[in-house]
């Protein structure tokens, strides 16, 4: 049997097309929710300066819990499958996004803020029209870090019957079937790489835009 046949064999037997769709669905839901919540947390923390330290400490603690432990801890609450996987991904991703959002919003050049005030922008307009757009490259950087986390957690979801590409990997490990492990492993790796480079390109574009030389 030649190489392509063996790959196709694994692909069909393990239903990798369907698994990939499941995988990307969990990934997309988790990342989108985490981005929205993360940015919101970042903005809230920016507005309530005192909350910042407390909240970031809590999130930091959440971040130190091992992924696997968190997945298992959520089982009694959310049962098996997709739900705990997505929730775990979100919990892990909020911190980098929120922290980058907060840093981005607070590190905008004071001169720009001064001019915005002098022109007659209110605080919320300064946030929307000046701070937020100028923080976008950093926010995108946070989302990119979260993307890598999410890809990892979703793959682990295979352990708790979440489906996705973690499932065939589990099968491969249990049956000690090298073909399944290698094909699925490479495929997950390739997906992660492609998604990360797309995110990298978006991040770079935002930086270029900020410099105004598109």
């Amino acid at each position: 049997m030649n190489l392509i046949d063996r790959v196709m064999d694994v692909w069909e037997l393990q239903q990798l097309t369907q698994r990939t769709v499941e995988h990307l669905t969990m990934f997309a839901i988790a990342l989108i929710v985490a981005s929205i919540v993360g940015v919101m947390v970042g903005v809230i923390v920016y507005r309530r300066f005192r909350v910042a330290t407390v909240l970031f400490n809590v999130l930091n603690i959440a971040e130190t819990i091992p992924t696997l432990a968190l997945l298992v801890l959520l089982l009694p609450l959310l049962g098996l499958g997709m739900k705990p996987t997505i929730v775990t991904s979100i919990i892990y991703s909020i911190l980098p996004i929120a922290r980058n959002t907060y840093t981005g919003l607070t590190s905008v050049d004071k001169e720009h803020i001064f001019v915005a005030e002098a022109l007659g922008l209110s605080d919320s307009e300064i946030l929307r029209k000046v701070r937020f757009p100028l923080a976008l490259p950093l926010i995108a950087g946070g989302i990119r870090i979260a993307l890598v986390f999410t890809m990892g957690v979703v793959t682990l979801g295979g352990l708790i019957a979440a489906g996705g590409l973690g499932a065939p990997l589990q099968t491969g490990i249990q049956l000690y079937d090298k073909d399944i492990i290698i094909v699925t492993g490479l495929w997950v790796g390739l997906l992660a790489l492609v998604l990360d480079s797309v995110a990298g390109m978006i991040e770079h574009r935002l930086e270029v835009n900020r410099d105004g030389t598109r």
Partner: peptide
């Protein structure tokens, strides 16, 4: 009050993420 007054500062005053049109049309 500020929107009833124009304010001009040394050159850094333009917002780097806005085009000339957006800068002038901001208010």
């Amino acid at each position: 009050l500020r929107r009833n007054m124009g304010y001009v500062i040394q050159q850094i005053g333009l917002f780097p993420h806005m085009s000339v049109r957006e800068n002038i049309g901001l208010i």
